[in-house]
Design a protein around this nucleic acid. Structure first.
Lengths: 93, 93
DNA sequence: GCACTAAGGTTGACTTAGTTG
DNA sequence: CAACTAAGTCAACCTTAGTGC
């Protein structure tokens, strides 16, 4: 899982609502990819990191950056960007 | 999990390498959100659906569309888009 | 064919307790 | 403090077997 944090593993886990006694071990396993959390826990971690849940699962570096950047845009900017890059229907065939 | 398929649940599961006898039940559980697959299985499903893994976890509709559209761009287009929308460092403070 | 489900077995995440820098 | 790990427990997923459309 793609975790980009500024806090310690333990602090992040506690912030995400994990029991302080287990936060360190669990976040460590997630960050190293030994274990994977359930989606609810992943969602809480994402909220604490202020990134979209999808960002944690972005395997491609550029896509990860795009997800972060897109998330920062205003609703209007998102709509304009989508209009720019989404393929128009009825073109390919 | 965000699954947008054109095949049947069973067909998708088989295509993703699941045992034909269990493909239907498992994909059904994933699609309805009753169970979640491990990341390796999710990755195989994403490949079959020809979407990035992150797309399956996009909770926001616009972000989901953006991920799909971004994935279709050429490497050069991706880099140009990132240059456009990524916040420049040193502006906020 | 399709989507969907309950019950029980089994695997892997979770807790505990600990080491190391 | 921090990052990281092994071992045993048990919840969550997987399999089986089945329903109804």
């Amino acid at each position: 899982m793609r975790i980009k944090r500024e806090l310690s593993q333990r602090e992040l886990g506690i912030l995400a609502g994990l029991d302080p006694f287990v936060a360190s071990a669990r976040v460590n396993r997630y960050e190293l990819g030994v274990h994977a959390p359930d989606v609810a826990t992943a969602q809480r971690l994402a909220q604490c990191l202020q990134v979209p849940l999808a960002y944690l699962f972005a395997t491609d570096e550029r896509l990860a950056r795009a997800i972060l950047a897109f998330d920062q845009l205003s609703a209007r900017q998102k709509d304009r960007l989508l209009a720019d890059i989404e393929p128009k229907p009825g073109s390919p065939p």
